[in-house]
């Protein structure tokens, strides 16, 4: 009873306020809410500061390790022919730089590595797509592909030499066989992580299967795919060094593996260490200059990393 009196008295006033509320008020209210609710823009640190923050700690670590290395050498624990100091390795590196041997080795290895990686990218992506789309193929080949990731790439070298001869062909074969599983698995992992809601969305929007893959599944799988590419590159580079060491190829020139082997044959320990450090540095450089910015861009775009 009390409620109905309440209804009767409040209704007219209520309708009057309501009439005033629509529709401009909604726009103003929303503008206010948007201003209050929107997540604050992340303050992006300046480029200089970012580089300093990223490069600082590794540089300090490198310098520290070099000092420790020099200290161990200075103790005279091992003869310099077995454990040369940083200075000797540095001058060996400079000699190689002056003679052009270092530049040649780096460019020929890097060229071979990138060509091999490019081929792996195409092959790995196709294999990954096939596995992601066809259940039966995935059930059959999925475990094999995962297992291949733990197969040391060196194991492929003898087979590759017998198939393609001790040249570039063998090197490419080893690189591709080592990188394809990582790339395909990365794509697969990326596709598996696509939220189910996205697939439903594609259906609701009336996408064909191909459109769903192109506009929804693949872009959604991109972070996993990039992680796969990154690992694929690491495996490519390792595999290539193994191949060059065992089967020095000549068509594209002599690579870092050959430089390493030359050092071993001449019992030139500074050259061996310089070559190892170069292999390490090239691997890191490709990662830092190519993959990390790419990954960073993709993650930032999605608000997953600032």
């Amino acid at each position: 009873m009390a409620e109905s009196t309440h209804l009767a008295t409040t209704r007219p006033a209520d309708s009057a306020t309501l009439a005033l509320r629509e529709p401009d008020d909604t726009a103003a209210l929303e503008a206010g809410l948007d201003a209050l609710d929107a997540p604050p823009p992340a303050d992006a640190p300046s480029a200089v500061r970012r580089v300093l923050r990223a490069a600082g700690p590794p540089l300090v670590a490198a310098v520290t390790l070099t000092v420790l290395w020099q200290a161990v050498v200075a103790l005279g624990w091992q003869p310099p022919s077995v454990l040369p100091g940083p200075g000797a390795v540095w001058s060996s590196f400079l000699d190689g730089l002056r003679s052009g041997a270092v530049g040649h080795a780096v460019s020929s290895s890097l060229g071979r590595g990138l060509v091999g990686f490019g081929a792996s990218l195409v092959a790995g992506t196709l294999v990954g797509l096939l596995l992601a789309q066809v259940r039966l193929v995935r059930d059959g080949l999925g475990p094999l592909l995962s297992g291949m990731q733990s197969l040391p790439s060196v194991a492929w070298v003898p087979a590759a030499i017998l198939w393609f001869g001790a040249g570039d062909g063998a090197a490419y074969a080893v690189v591709v066989l080592s990188a394809v599983p990582s790339i395909a698995n990365g794509l697969l992992a990326g596709v598996d992580q696509v939220p189910r809601g996205f697939d439903r969305l594609a259906t609701v929007l009336g996408a064909s299967r191909l459109e769903a893959v192109r506009f929804v599944t693949l872009p959604a799988a991109l972070p996993g795919y990039l992680a796969g590419l990154r690992q694929g590159w690491a495996f490519s580079w390792r595999a290539l060094m193994a191949a060059e060491l065992i089967a020095p190829s000549v068509q594209r020139g002599q690579g870092l593996g050959v430089l390493l082997d030359a050092g071993r044959r001449a019992a030139d320990m500074p050259l061996v260490l310089a070559a190892i450090l170069l292999i390490l540095l090239v691997g890191i450089a490709v990662e830092v200059l190519l993959f990390r910015p790419l990954e960073r861009r993709v993650l930032r775009q999605r608000g997953l990393e600032v």
């Binding site: 929303e30 809410l33 948007d34 609710d37 929107a38 997540p39 823009p41 999605r302 608000g303």
Partner: peptide, 10 residues
């Protein structure tokens, strides 16, 4: 704006 720059209501 990207999705992560929008509030839930937006």
């Amino acid at each position: 704006a990207r999705v992560h720059e929008l509030s839930g209501g937006m």
